[in-house]
Structures are given as structure tokens and as C-alpha cells.
Computed example of a mutant assay.
Amino acid sequence: MFWIITLILLGLFLLIVEFLLIPGVTVAGIGGMLVIVYAVYSAYVDHGTTTGHITLIFTAIASIITIAFSLRAKTWRRVSLDTNVDSKVIEDYDKEVKPGDEGLTISRLAPAGKASINGNVYEVWAQGELVDPKTPITVIKVDTNKIIVKPKQL
């Protein structure tokens, strides 16, 4: 009977590893289920029907309790990362580029691409048309994170 209890505890441990450490269906989860099923099967075969029923009921209750404790919020707080990301991706182009500034495209604007304006490289958007590389451009509008350009009129 010691080996059956040991196998059930090992199966429950593998299920906890599956829930908390290795997400998805992996060897730990499948192995845990197989070990638990084998332990219950062994209880029926080696010790009779009554002991098998008791083992099955104990295993079902232990599994429910284990799953309930593993999925509680406090359990997840202990194993999860507790930091906040305070950075921003948005760049403020209003201070560097003004409407009317001129530049030269580096890549094709279809409608977005790279351009050199005031000696710096920016991602720019063409207004309504495709612009070939090495074409002179004029800035017509600057949003917080978007520079809209058009080909320079010659």
C-alpha cells in the first residue's frame, strides 16, 4: 500500500508541475495522469475492490484539493513576476521635425518607409502615393508619433 500512496503523491506532484511550471500538455501532465491511473489500478488488482474504491475516492478528493490550491490567486502571485513596465514606445517628433522641413527618402514609401530629415533617419508616411527611394520630400504634417510627407514639388 506504501507504493500506491507514493505513486499517487508523485502523480499529483507531476500535475502541479504541469499546472505551474510547464504550460500546455507535456510529459509531466501525461506522466502524472498515467502514474495516478496505474496507482488506482494497482489498488484494485493487489488489494481488492473495497481498497480500490477507497483509493479511487481518496485520489479524486486529493486531485480536486490539489487543483484548487494550485489555481488560487495567492499561489500564482508567489510564482509570477511582480514588476510593472513604465516605459513608452511613442516618440515625440513634434520637437525635432516641423511641417515644411525637407529631406530625402532612403527606402520606398509604400506608404511607409525610411527617410532622412534634418540629418536624422525617421519612419515616415507618404500621403496618398508611393514614393521611390532617393526622392526629395517635404514634411506636411507631424503627429506625436507619425510624420506625413509628400514628394517635393520641383
Score class of each variant (00 low, 15 high):
Thr144Trp: 01
Gly48Trp: 04
Arg108Thr: 13
Thr6Val: 14
Lys114Ser: 07
Lys141Cys: 03
Ala73Arg: 15
Phe69Pro: 02
Tyr44His: 03
Pro99Val: 12
Ile36Lys: 01
Glu96Met: 10
Val85Tyr: 08
Val142Asp: 04
Val149Ala: 02
Thr83Cys: 00
Thr55Cys: 13
Ser70Tyr: 00
Asp92Met: 09
Val142Pro: 06
Val35Phe: 06
Gly31Ser: 07
Lys98Pro: 00
Ile8Glu: 01
Glu123Pro: 02
Tyr38Glu: 00
Ile57Ala: 14
His47Ile: 04
Val17Glu: 01
Ala112Val: 15
Lys98Ser: 11
Ala43Val: 10
Leu130Ser: 14
Ala126Phe: 09
Tyr38Leu: 15
Thr105Asn: 07
Thr135Leu: 04
Asp143Pro: 00
Ala115Met: 04
Gly32Asp: 08
Val45Ile: 15
Ile57Asn: 03
Leu34Ser: 11
Gly128Leu: 14
Phe19Asn: 12
Ile106Asn: 06
Ile54Cys: 06
Trp125Gly: 00
Leu56Gln: 09
Leu21Glu: 04
Ile61Trp: 01
Val139Ile: 12
Ile147Ser: 09
Ile148Leu: 14
Ile16Cys: 09
Arg72Leu: 08
Gly103Asn: 02
Trp76Glu: 07
His53Lys: 02
Thr49Ser: 12
Ile22Ala: 10
Thr144Asn: 12
Ile147Gly: 05
Asn120Leu: 06
Tyr41Phe: 15
Ile147Pro: 07
Leu71Gly: 03
Glu18Leu: 02
Leu109Gln: 02
Leu21Lys: 11
Val139Thr: 06
Pro136Gln: 06
Leu7Tyr: 11
